[in-house]
Design a protein around this nucleic acid. Structure first.
Lengths: 205, 205, 205, 205
DNA sequence: CATGAATGAGAGTTCATTCAT
DNA sequence: TATGAATGAACTCTCATTCAT
């Protein structure tokens, strides 16, 4: 029976990096890369500046590590998507739902987009990585569902880049959540319903 | 024949504020609010940093003035939209086209979105102003076109927030242009075609 | 009958220096030499910075000119003192009264002492000039009255530097007025009475 | 035998604040609050400007701390005065002597008066504090000695504010020492003798 | 591993002074 | 004579980074 109450020194030590990265996430988010002080990150977990430098060589490397830390890719989401059964339409609908759920539940995913936009010109790698890890896989999966639907006669033939258009409302939803945060409440259910209705029915009679 | 070679003091002075604001736009864009040095803005137009302070009291006020400077609202675009003739569908299609054109042509509009996201927590006013001046008017106009189309039997009845979903792909297009800038080419025509196809035909057969 | 209402341009011009010096006095007084901005002095008389430099080469020279401007020596006071009649005691009493009156009435004299103390190490000349123009003549005159009184048997023989001690309470009164300005009211009459009583009666029975 | 050559970190640290305050005293004295550069204070003790900010938040707070640092009140002097024996006259004479000694020996006390006059309008607290800690206690003590002397028939009845007049020559002495510093030598003995002679014998035969 | 005193390279801002108008 | 745009040096304060303990 392991003792859960107290962390041994070794465990403590092992958690430090994660602790720092979590604190860094909050601080960098709130103030941006340049305005965040290493000391604020340290204070947030009750250590001093120097301690941060024990684990990370520079503020820049800490930022990059933090980005890697919060970038837990869509793998699981796409894995779930692959396991779906049913028509292409049903599976696409379910996938879109999963994406909305993820956007609402995973704050780090949302804020990662903020870092991509806000710090993208300072840290170009994160832009590329973000595209490779999130946008592109999602796009491909949606496109393959569309292609399948078309092949099976479920969907009509579509122009190029249609997957982008299909996914776009979810992206816009994410961006609005980012911008307005808690200032304006965006209701996921309403938004999702409108999105699905658009995708599956279009506008015309 | 007037002497065109040099600007008189008076002319020079009249141009200074605009000149500074344009330079500020470029610098703030490239490095963000905090990392931009007032001196860089000054250097960009060949003056010294003191000169900036002749026209703007603080870096903060300069930033805010710059944001106002680049926020030329959609008024003209919406005015054009109001003058459109034809069915609701035709007018909606044309409006979406106009929006894409604007996104492609108006770099300042695009980058304004970047400032909203990146500096929104430092300058909350710009978030609200952006919503009032851009998002909201566009949304309302689209919604009124939809309502009209529904009334005339052109469009089927739609769930709430449908206008958001209809506009969303344009927003996503803007955000992608922002993020990838020149790193990845986004073809407006392809994107627009997919968007319109989605809106007017949905996905299903 | 001269037109008093408006100053001609020439008159205007002739007054400028005085106007500037008066404004300089107020500003330098309030903030001290270093913290006073040439622009504040200009604003006070409704002109711009540049105008000050038409009349004075540097801020330093302006300060020095201001000091000279407000240093209207004791000549008249001492002249009045010379015209006094009566016993040495009566004349000394009257002189002390005149000094108190001057301290109370002549704000510039009082504030000159402040400049001497506050800016003395930056402008050593004003220290010397102040001594020569004010302290020393007064001291000498008091000393000569004392000597005369001693010679006539009015006063007992006195140790060296007695004039200083006789004048000292007036100096202290001035300094307190300077320090407390309007924060603590110092009543001239009470103070003067105590001073004269001390000088003419001492403390003992 | 302890190693005297170098101070340990801890010792160094403990001394820093005092070291800084002493250096600040000298610099502020020489140039006044506004003209003193934090860097000069730092250089004086061989550290860099950043170090000052480790111990004091702003130049203003440093100045105020410095004033508190040099304001070691009269408590000991008044305590000594309370222990005096003898007639009221003898005790008053001794008190006046103690005050002169203090003025001559305690440079910080003298210069405090300079700060009160020169920076009083920028730091009004120091004016009040100075009055409460120095002027007022001294005045009260002198007044109580006078009252006692009057009660015992040693002194004749005196008008109001007499204590001020009795103390005034010492204040004037202090102010002159301040103004002329080393430019003009003021001999304490001569001055004190004249002062006591004035107080105890007045001017008249 | 953790600390925090110290550094030093800036960055924002101010202001005396100049000079073309 | 008067203006005020422009300059540039100076000054306060900040903060990533180092290193002795």
């Amino acid at each position: 029976m392991p003792d859960m109450k107290k962390l041994s020194r070794a465990e403590q030590k092992a958690r430090r990096p994660t602790q720092i990265l979590d604190a860094a996430f909050e601080e960098f988010l709130e103030r941006g890369y340049v305005a965040t002080r290493v000391e604020d990150i340290a204070n947030r977990i009750g250590v001093t500046k120097g301690t941060i430098y024990v684990y990370f060589e520079t503020k820049e490397q800490l930022f990059e590590a933090m980005i890697r830390h919060i970038s837990v890719p869509f793998e699981d989401l796409l894995a779930s998507a692959h396991e779906l059964k049913g028509t292409a339409a049903a599976r696409l609908e379910r996938l879109i739902e999963l994406v909305y759920n993820r956007i609402v539940e995973d704050r780090q995913l949302r804020e990662l987009m903020k870092f991509v936009i806000a710090e993208g010109s300072r840290f170009p790698q994160i832009v590329d990585r973000h595209h490779e890890a999130f946008i592109d896989p999602l796009d491909r999966h949606v496109q393959s569902l569309i292609d399948e639907g078309v092949k099976h006669g479920e969907f009509r033939p579509m122009p190029a880049a249609f997957a982008d258009a299909v996914v776009a409302p979810a992206i816009a939803f994410l961006v609005f959540k980012l911008i307005f945060d808690d200032r304006r409440i965006l209701d996921k259910t309403t938004y999702l319903k409108a999105h699905l209705d658009l995708v599956f029915n279009g506008l015309l009679v």
